[in-house]
Amino acid sequence: MIRDQAIGPQSEREIHPGARWQPLRRLLERGGIQILLVLGALIFALPFVWMVSTSLKADRQIFAFPPIWVPDPFIWGNFPAVFIYAPMHLYFFNTLVIALAHVFGAVFTCSLAAYAFSRLRAPGRDLIFMVMVSQMMIPYIVMLVPLYLLFAELEWIDTFYPLTIPAMLGTPFYIFMLRQFFLTIPMELEEAAIIDGATRLRIWWTIILPLAKPALATVAIFSFMFAWNDFTGPLIFLNTREKFTLSLGLQAFMFERRTMWGPLMAASTMMIVPILIVFFLAQKHFIQGIALTGIKA
């Protein structure tokens, strides 16, 4: 089951005693991988398929048993119905603003802190690091009441500030993650720059950030997704509908003892399709990025 990440060009150069069998072996290997990928994709894509299929069903078909995968009839009306209950275009924009603030925080503030934690020696640094990591161990929900009080004092309730400002100042999760990545980048790469008298800020900006592109792409995606799907924060700190996010908007389809599943799934589909597109376009950065071999050689 364990296959290392034999990247194409390299296996081409493979020197192997049983060279005769190599084409067959490779074929089998490729086939095996393809099968695993298809199987895995089937399992992992199931919810998406289900969601889309349900978004086109009448309510009475949604809980039919055994499950119906292809709606009959197709209820296209679920999609326009969404807008009767929730102005998704408005929520989309609100969510985007909040999510971009999170991405900004993750990519810039967090990477700055991560650079300090991974490269710069200072008394008490490791203690500060542990304090930061331990920040994640306090359950968020017991901090809600004091936080609410704090934001109320600042007159921040029902604004985007509680959802953006703290995130822009950095999140332990991303700092920790980036620190781990930075620690795998060899020191030699910046030593030359230090000797040339470059400032640390410059090194961070011109050497570390470009090298850490896959990691930055990862935290960018993560922070974006987190903000996109976050429910608790918007629920507690936003009151009026003009400021709602998409995840709060989904509540509009859930009534007491009744859920409008068709429109709910249609809204969910509208909510995640843009993300999938962004992800699809961004994913090549996860593998592209580092050409460390070249730099080393």
């Binding site: 309510d59 009475r60 949604i62 809980f63 039919a64 048993f65 003892r257 009744r258 859920t259 409008m260 599943w261």
Partner: peptide, 14 residues
């Protein structure tokens, strides 16, 4: 299978 409430097995004729 009906834990999600809105369409219950009585409504489905089950």
């Amino acid at each position: 299978g009906f834990a999600g409430q809105p369409v219950d097995p009585f409504a489905q004729g089950q």
